[in-house]
């Protein structure tokens, strides 16, 4: 990462920290520009997170925040013996492994489609984006009713077609996959817009050249389209992964982590132990461990895929 100075330095006052040299005047202006943001985020972003993470080393309880004692690494030791964490990690891993390719494929597919369709383009774009705008309350209530075993529209339909009623959100083997589908459905529109604009930025002459070479549409897609939007794909993939790792609200609203713990994810477990069980100390310890895990995975991926989105 490199931040360039845009002007020939007028002021020659300079100073050095470590091996980097700074222009004094530029530094002062920069800090002044960023100051309101720095101050406010220290107070209202860093400090709350810091305080709640520090509770990880204590026995803090929601109802006894005035009597907190230091317990060292006890909470972390407990975390490594907690069978619920194994379950939550497994569910989250399944969720991430399923939702990422699905949502990635869906958003890319929709973008390719929109890039091709001429008529009603604006309308379609708007339609695909609508689930992004709807609140989770609407979508979860809707899907819970649609997927209901006894009265849901989808089961009614399956039965008309001669199939057997499915448990969906009430079946421990299906519930997580239902949430995968619903999440992808709700999120795909956003990444679709990102892909769409990346597609529109591919120079047209690349395709013309390919047509002359009689490359099929599929070959064009593989050899021109995909390589051209690779940086965008890497960016979308990584943000999607981070989002997927933090899934919490959908299972909380739709299944409450059940049936039989089959949709209990890590973020939801952190929330539950901290808020419902008031065990703030333990909850913070898991949050801290989990943050390390996400950071490792996403930084590792960044390295692996190479397409860093920073200049």
């Amino acid at each position: 990462m490199q931040i360039e100075s845009i002007l020939p330095a007028r002021s020659f006052a300079r100073f050095k920290i470590g091996r980097t040299e700074y222009n004094t005047k530029e530094s002062v202006s920069g800090i002044l520009f960023a100051l309101p943001c720095i101050v406010l985020s220290i107070i209202f972003v860093f400090l709350p997170i810091f305080i709640s993470l520090m509770y990880a080393f204590t026995d803090a309880n929601m109802l006894r925040l005035d009597r907190v004692t230091f317990v060292g690494l006890e909470n972390f030791a407990r975390a490594f013996e907690d069978p619920d964490i194994v379950n939550a990690l497994r569910n989250t891993a399944i969720f991430v492994a399923c939702v990422t390719p699905l949502q990635f494929g869906a958003s890319l597919g929709l973008a390719v489609l929109l890039n091709r369709v001429r008529h009603c383009n604006t309308f379609l774009r708007w339609a695909f984006f609508i689930p992004v705008m709807l609140s989770l309350a609407v979508t979860s209530m809707l899907w819970m009713n649609l997927l209901n075993v006894q009265e849901g529209l989808i089961n009614t339909f399956i039965e008309i077609l001669g199939g057997e009623r499915q448990g969906f959100l009430e079946d421990p083997t299906q519930a997580l996959y239902c949430i995968v589908f619903i999440s992808a459905w709700q999120g795909a529109g956003y990444q679709m817009l990102i892909f769409l604009s990346a597609l529109q930025n591919i120079p047209k002459d690349l395709y013309e050249a390919a047509s002359i070479d009689q490359a099929s549409k599929w070959q064009q897609f593989i050899h021109i389209t995909l390589p051209s939007i690779k940086p965008t794909m890497v960016f979308v993939l990584i943000t999607m992964l981070i989002g997927a790792f933090r899934i919490c609200i959908q299972p909380m609203v739709m299944t409450g982590g059940g049936p039989l713990g089959s949709t209990m994810t890590m973020s939801y477990y952190i929330y539950k132990t901290g808020i419902d069980y008031r065990d703030v100390g333990y909850s913070s310890a898991i949050a801290l461990l989990y943050t390390f895990l996400i950071a490792t995975v996403s930084l590792g991926l960044r390295k692996l895929l190479g397409g860093d989105n920073q200049k």
Binding site: G167, D171, P172, T173, G258, P259, L260, D276, Y277, R278
Partner: peptide
Amino acid sequence: YPRLKDAYGEVLSYMRNMNIV
């Protein structure tokens, strides 16, 4: 109680799923 409540709910929900587990 908050934990006990959830654990008890978990048991009865296990019972509800007796045909699947």
